[in-house]
């Protein structure tokens, strides 16, 4: 079974963006991408995948309902082995500190540098095999 990267963002076009950016990897099935458009939805998905296929979670912070930072400790409790990288427009030191405190492995600011993101994914994919 392929490894899975879960992306959590309320903006629907994020899926189109990611699928186009990583079209080659997805076509070659190096990994699979799944998309949740709310923190609640994401938690349901994480609960469902109790196997090792989930290797990385990418999450926006500002979302209606539960925010990314609120979701973070919950998801880490469910799957402490899965790294979570937060994506946000607000790259200030305070937000970074909060994210790391709550268990995030890192913080990326928008607009996303897909080259950097690709490296992160590659690292995890390599670790999984």
């Amino acid at each position: 079974m392929s490894v899975l990267v879960l992306v959590v963002d309320d903006e629907p076009d994020v899926e189109a963006l990611f699928r186009q950016q990583f079209r080659r990897d997805l076509r070659s099935q190096r990994f699979v991408m799944d998309f949740a458009n709310s923190a609640a939805d994401a938690l349901t998905r994480v609960d469902a995948t109790s196997d090792n296929s989930l290797i990385l979670i990418l999450s926006d912070i500002n979302m209606p309902g539960m925010t990314g930072l609120e979701m973070l400790p919950k998801v880490k409790e469910m799957r402490p082995d899965v790294p979570v990288i937060m994506i946000t427009a607000y790259g200030d030191a305070d937000t970074r500190r909060k994210a790391l405190e709550k268990g995030a492995s890192g913080l990326l600011t928008k607009p996303i540098d897909f080259a950097v993101l690709r490296e992160e994914i590659d690292t995890r994919v390599a670790q999984a095999h």
């Binding site: 903006e11 076009d13 189109a16 963006l17 186009q20 950016q21 607009p111």
Partner: peptide
Amino acid sequence: FVNNFAAL
């Protein structure tokens, strides 16, 4: 989004 999708 404009920039990303345009580049893509």
